[in-house]
Amino acid sequence: MLPKGTEKSKELIEAYSFISPLLLFILLFIFVPVVGTIVTSWFKATTFLSEKFIFFENYRLLFKDVNFWQSAQFTFLFILVSVPIELFLGILFALVLNCTIPLRGLLRVCVLIPWAIPAAISARIWELIYNYNYGLLNFLFMKLGIIPKPINWLGTSLGAFFSLIIADVWKTTSFVAIILLAGLQVIPEELYAQAQVDRADFLQRFYRVTLPLLKPAIIVVLLFRTIDALRVFDLIYVITSGGPGGTTTSLSLYAYKYFVGGDFGYGSALSVILFLIAFFMSIVYVKLAGFSKEIA
């Protein structure tokens, strides 16, 4: 029989050895690249030329860059418009899916489908829907008499903005609905029964019982979606490529264009800005989600 101390340290070594592959991968392929990006952002680093340390020069240029401010503005507007719509529709869908209705299982599957389709592929579907000459949207709107002649949805900055919003809402409302549905399912039936006795109507029940109890799930989903919308890339890359006139260029897309152009220093500086915003949001998220209570 080994002494207790040895047993303890043996378990410690085992505990570390089981977790080390995970740590290795996360460090090597996520953590190190982020640090690498931060360091690169201090250099004038372009392909074909030797790197030169310029410290915060990229950031100084960035704050004077009109296009940077334009893409920052677009990204925040995108979050401010898309996330509330997704939340509203998500709550609506979740409430319906939580009712005992016929074919509920089928409905749930259908709601999941947009989530399962790769964003780049759904973006191509939407690109065709918005097509000026033979897209579904112009066809439907003209058939319904909403518009007299076809509209070039992606040709104006406002049209392109809302086209992207709708495509994003389509893709992500499923996720919101599924998470909120899980939140709804843990609300005890008795609370509704009590409200029924108190003669509360449908809306009152929603405000008094459902909404307060759903609040934790709503906060989680809200922050999660906000961080996700902040990094939006796939949809925009495919549908508008940032156009028209760069008005729908998200921060991710703007940084990407510099990487592709071979300017790694400036692209990295842009990425670092985005990283910092996401980082602080995720700290808030983790705090609010009451994360520490959960662990085994």
């Binding site: 690249p33 982020v34 985005l274």
Partner: peptide
């Protein structure tokens, strides 16, 4: 870590 934007990794 899971909330890091992909763009902040991809260049490096």
């Amino acid at each position: 870590v899971s909330m890091f934007p992909q763009i902040s990794l991809v260049g490096w």
